[in-house]
Structure formats: C-alpha cells, structure tokens
Amino acid sequence: MSQAVVVPTDKLSITKKQQGCYVFSRDQLTAISATIQKHIGKLPTVTIELMNERSITSDNIDELLKDPFIESSRISSISYSVFEYNIPNRVSVRLRETWMAPVSYEISGERNVCLALEQSITSVIGASKKWYTWINVHNYPGLLQMAIVFPLAAGVGILVALPFSKAGDAKPPGIFFFVFAALIFGIPWASGKVIPKTVFNFGRGRIVYERISSPPKWFFSAIILGLLATFFRDEILTAIKSFF
C-alpha cells in the first residue's frame, strides 16, 4: 500500500523598507487592502494613527477613511496587518510621515504567496511615487546627503561672504561659517518640509498636497524670492553683518 509523501511547503520571510516621496489617495489606500485580501484571503486590519495622538482601527477601510477624525486631523501613519494563527501567511504594511523610509512591509508564509504579494504591493504603492523624489535629500544615503548638502552650503556661504571681503571687511570667515552652519541644518529641514515623503491626499492632508502639487508655483516663487533678495541685498547683508 503506497503512502503519500508530504512535502513541506517552502517558507519565505520578506522585510523591506522603501525610500521616496508618495502621495496616497483614498482609492490607492483601498487598493492596498484589496491586494492583501486577494493574496492572503482575508481583509487586513487597518489602523490609522493621527497627529492628535488618536488612532482608529477597522477591517473596513472604506468606512475608516470616512471617519470624521480624518477631516479634522492629519494622518501620521496607516498600517495594514494580517496576523492570525489559522492563516499560514502573514503581512504587515506601514505608510507613514517621516524623514526616514516612508514605506515598510513584512511578509511571511508560503514562498509563492509571499513573492506574488510583494510584487503586487510594490506595484500598487509604486503608482503613488512622485517624480520629485530626487529633490528630498532624505531619500539619499547619509554620505550622499553630505555630498549634496555640504557643497551647496559652502557655495552659498562663499557668495554671501564675498561682498564683505571685497569691501575690506575683516569678518568674512565668520560670516561664511555662520551661513554654512545654518544651511547644513536648514537644507535638510527645508527639504523635508517643502517636499514631504508621504502625503495623504484627503482630509487635512489635502492642504499639504495642494502646496506641492504645482511645480510652476515653486518656479515663480523662486523668482520672486530671488528678486526680493536682489532688491533688499544691502539690507540683508547689513542684517547678517550685525551678528558679527
């Protein structure tokens, strides 16, 4: 009498973090939930954490995204999870506002299911990634960030200190280091504020989205700031000089 040989299913565990700048709509967030259900066979539990230190949880993401709290407070993170003992495959996906990796996920279980789910999740989330990802310096490794920020800060510091040097002022080195130090911290800070890594384009998050959604506004704003800086050049230099 022959006996069936039970071959254990290959197991796989995937843990990844993704850099980039993302804008998520309600439909895209719902699509992530549907993708997990398609591969795992169960709707994920979704938890939305708000900036006012409140959180709301449900497995019905459509109802969750209609919650009144969403309209009155910005979202800090959205998490999807399926962790049950009677289900062989598990998944956790997190989208959050941060200067670090805004997208992270963990998938474990049967090899084929994990690989298929990872590909689908990457595709759905990737559709929300924006072209201006390269502008935010926090998307680069630490050494590359310094390679970008330090030359910019040094260049601006030289441009600001140069007029004082030509005027015979004895303090251009101090002015240079003041501007250099300010920009070393200011450029990364401004980069994260002007080009946030994660925007939820609904509720209070729509305000942030409208601010960054129109590149021409940045262009004309830069021109206006440049004209103002040129017009008030002497006053700006005098104000900087007064610190030294």
Rank of each mutant, 00 (worst) to 15 (best):
P68I: 02
L64H: 00
P88D: 09
S92H: 11
H39E: 12
D59R: 12
M51L: 11
K38F: 08
T47V: 12
T47S: 13
I40T: 14
K38I: 01
R54H: 15
S81Y: 03
Y80P: 06
F83G: 00
R90D: 04
S55T: 12
P88K: 09
S72E: 10
T30N: 14
R90C: 06
S72F: 03
S33A: 10
S58Q: 03
I40S: 07
L50H: 09
D62K: 06
I36D: 06
N86S: 08
L95A: 05
S58I: 03
V46G: 03
E71N: 11
S92E: 15
E49K: 11
S77Q: 09
Y80I: 08
T35Q: 08
V46D: 00
N60D: 15
L95G: 04
S55L: 14
I70R: 03
L95I: 07
I40R: 11
E49V: 13
E71Y: 01
A31V: 10
K66P: 00
L43Y: 09
L29Q: 09
G41F: 07
Q37E: 15
S55K: 15
H39V: 05
E53W: 15
I87S: 06
E71L: 02
P44S: 06
S33L: 12
Y85Q: 09
P44M: 11
T30G: 08
P88R: 07
K42Y: 04
P88T: 10
R94F: 00
I70L: 06
N52Y: 05
E63V: 01
D59P: 02
R74P: 00
N52C: 02
I56T: 04
N60P: 07
S55H: 15
I61H: 01
D62I: 11
S77Y: 11
I70M: 07
I56L: 13
D62Y: 06
I70G: 01
F69N: 14
G41V: 10
V46Y: 00
D67A: 10
S77P: 04
S73A: 11
F69L: 15
S76Y: 08
I36S: 05
E84I: 01
L43G: 10
E53R: 15
I36Y: 07
I61S: 02
P68G: 02
S73E: 02
S72V: 08
L29D: 05
G41A: 10
I61R: 02
S76T: 13
R90V: 08
P88W: 09
P68V: 01
Y85D: 04
K38P: 06
L95Q: 09
Y80G: 05
I78K: 04
N89L: 14
N60E: 07
L65G: 00
V82R: 04
